[in-house]
Amino acid sequence: MLPIVGRTVGFISTLIGLTTSAMYDGHSMLRVTPQTKRQEDHLRDLGKHQGVSFIGGDPLVGDHSHVIASPQVLDFVLESLKKFETEHLLTNPDVGRSGLERMEGYISWDAYYDLDSINQYLTVQSVGHPDLVTLTTIGKSFEGRDLFLLKINNGSTTKPIIWIDSNIHAREWISSAVGLYLIDQLLNSPDIEIQAYLDDFNFHILPMANPDGFVFSHLTV
């Protein structure tokens, strides 16, 4: 029974990945960091343009936000950011292509992944489930890496919140894998009992609590 369920979950996840990739083929992702209220207001206005969307909520002064721009508006977005002198970085030149590759890798659950791959997976899930997922940053590590928090909420903000954090200790890679697996099951599983949890609880999942140590553990034996 378990192999059948596993294949079913993998099949559904792959379909979601294919749909997401088709929607975002050629779309670019940028990380933007407004430092003034003027820049924040400009980014909010920018998000109203067709072909521009923000991941993880509205931009705020001093916080990183991630914006996806279609090929048709990318030059306009870049020129606009330059005009307002807003700090920005192109982090993914093709969300659709790389997103699908990450999805196919993760649903096999037979390997450990580096930090960039984990963060990319979180982005793909937030793009693929905009009605359920909010991806945000809750701060930075000592070495300046983003701490990504993925929130799952099917509509109500008054339900009890289940908090899950992973990889507090650098070399406990299995804990972040478990966190990612929980995300996958809550978002992609066809199991009615699993989906029922979303009616009773909201989930806040921090898959990587110690990114600095995690990266270091990948570079040393």
Rank of each mutant, 00 (worst) to 15 (best):
N153K: 04
L78T: 15
G99S: 00
G6W: 11
I194T: 06
L187C: 03
A177Y: 10
Q120K: 05
V5F: 11
G213N: 02
S175F: 02
N210V: 00
D191C: 09
S98L: 11
L122W: 01
Y121R: 08
Q120P: 00
Q72K: 12
S166T: 09
V127W: 06
K82C: 10
G62P: 01
A69T: 13
L150A: 02
T123G: 04
T91F: 02
T134W: 06
I68V: 12
Y106D: 03
H49D: 10
D58M: 11
D110R: 13
S175I: 01
E85R: 15
S166I: 03
L182M: 11
N167D: 05
D41S: 09
H64Y: 09
G155I: 06
F214S: 03
G105C: 13
V221I: 12
R7T: 12
S98D: 15
K151R: 10
W109A: 12
T36N: 02
D146K: 06
D58S: 12
N167Q: 07
G26N: 03
L78M: 14
I68G: 05
L180T: 13
T157I: 09
H218W: 13
F216W: 14
Q125N: 09
R145M: 07
A209Y: 04
T33I: 12
D116V: 07
E87T: 14
E79M: 11
G128L: 01
R171K: 06
L122T: 01
D110E: 10
Q185A: 08
Y24W: 09
R44C: 08
P190C: 11
I205K: 05
G47V: 01
S141P: 06
T86G: 08
D199T: 09
D114P: 00
F148E: 08
G105D: 15
I183R: 05
L89Q: 15
T20C: 12
N188A: 04
P190F: 08
G139E: 04
D45Q: 12
D58V: 11
N167K: 03
T91C: 14
T20A: 05
I192Q: 10
I4V: 13
I55D: 00
L132Y: 08
S21V: 11
A111N: 13
Q195E: 03
R44D: 07
S28I: 08
V9C: 10
E104Y: 15
G47P: 07
L74V: 10
D41I: 07
P71E: 08
R7L: 14
L135G: 05
Y24H: 05
S176A: 12
K82S: 15
T134L: 09
D114Y: 05
D191Y: 08
R171A: 07
H129K: 07
P93R: 00
R31M: 13
S189H: 07
T86I: 15
I12Y: 12
I174P: 00
N167I: 00
M103F: 08
E85Y: 12
S176G: 04
K37S: 13
V77W: 01
G105N: 11
F214Y: 14
V32K: 00
P211E: 06
D191H: 11
E40S: 07
G96C: 00
H204W: 14
I183M: 09
G62W: 03
L78Y: 05
S117H: 11
D191N: 15
G51Y: 01
H218M: 10
I183Y: 05
L100E: 01
W173V: 06
G99D: 00
I162N: 01
E104N: 13
R7P: 09
M103D: 04
M208Y: 03
G51P: 05
W163T: 08
L132C: 07
L182W: 09
